[in-house]
Write a protein that binds this DNA or RNA. Sequence first.
DNA 1: GTGTCTGCAAACGATTTGCAAATTA
DNA 2: TAATTTGCAAATCGTTTGCAGACAC
Lengths: 145, 145
Amino acid sequence: MAENYHTILTSAGIRPSVQRVAVYAYLREHQNHPTVETLFSALSPEYPTLSRTTIYNTLRLFEEKHLVQSIQIEDGKTRYDSDMSGHIHFKCIRCGTIFDNFIGEKLYDSYAHYDKLLPPGFSMTKVQTNLWGICADCAAASATA
Amino acid sequence: MAENYHTILTSAGIRPSVQRVAVYAYLREHQNHPTVETLFSALSPEYPTLSRTTIYNTLRLFEEKHLVQSIQIEDGKTRYDSDMSGHIHFKCIRCGTIFDNFIGEKLYDSYAHYDKLLPPGFSMTKVQTNLWGICADCAAASATA
DNA sequence: GTGTCTGCAAACGATTTGCAAATTA
DNA sequence: TAATTTGCAAATCGTTTGCAGACAC
């Protein structure tokens, strides 16, 4: 498996350093749209010398090479996702949970959908639809409170 | 006109201070999705004592009262829009321009669209669809270069 | 007058930068 | 060994906080 990630990085023209493989593996094996801090906390125990700087460098490189996409759904910080399809996120404004692939992709490929509608001369590299609201758990909690 | 904004703020339960009216007027009369810095630069000449803190306070209050919405399309900073409808933004990754109401609202009311699709128990307060890519001007510029 | 609003200065948190040491081809 | 990558420390930038003075009802 880890060897597989190694190959993916190489094919994308990225030298598969230990740190880069670790970051990429985390992104592929978790659906939690980690922030840099989340990645740092998760990987530090296994890679004690890993620095935040390297995580930043790595994520920027991955995004340039279209291996991950950054998600703008928080106020102050950027989240990352190795799912490159144009899917929908929902953020609960009460508990902060971010739901992935909310109102599934099955409905339609939003990337293709919007790409067809672009005015002449425009081209598209990324699409993101974000919803904010109250999730079912929080709604239930406030109903009983 | 300015008197009109005064009334809108009052109806929303907001005390119409000079600073608040100025910020709201700017947002209504410009379609440039200003950042706090943009607002500060634009309004400082006319209101020399205006502080960034007040702009932050004001925008937070406006968003709570649903007079403006914040837009998460940049990396580090928040932009604001007095158009409360669920419309689409396009950011050119080359020149940085943000196009408003891109692929018009006419297509469909995205807020209503997604609201109908929410899983049971979920409720929605905000929707945002952002596209990134190269605008026609930048595409033309690099074609001739 | 009493409560709200403003705005300065300092604090904070995410991200970037400069650079020297470590690593890999 | 030459080019790339890592990671520390410091700097930067957007935003928040504490608080005292100014303002409005």
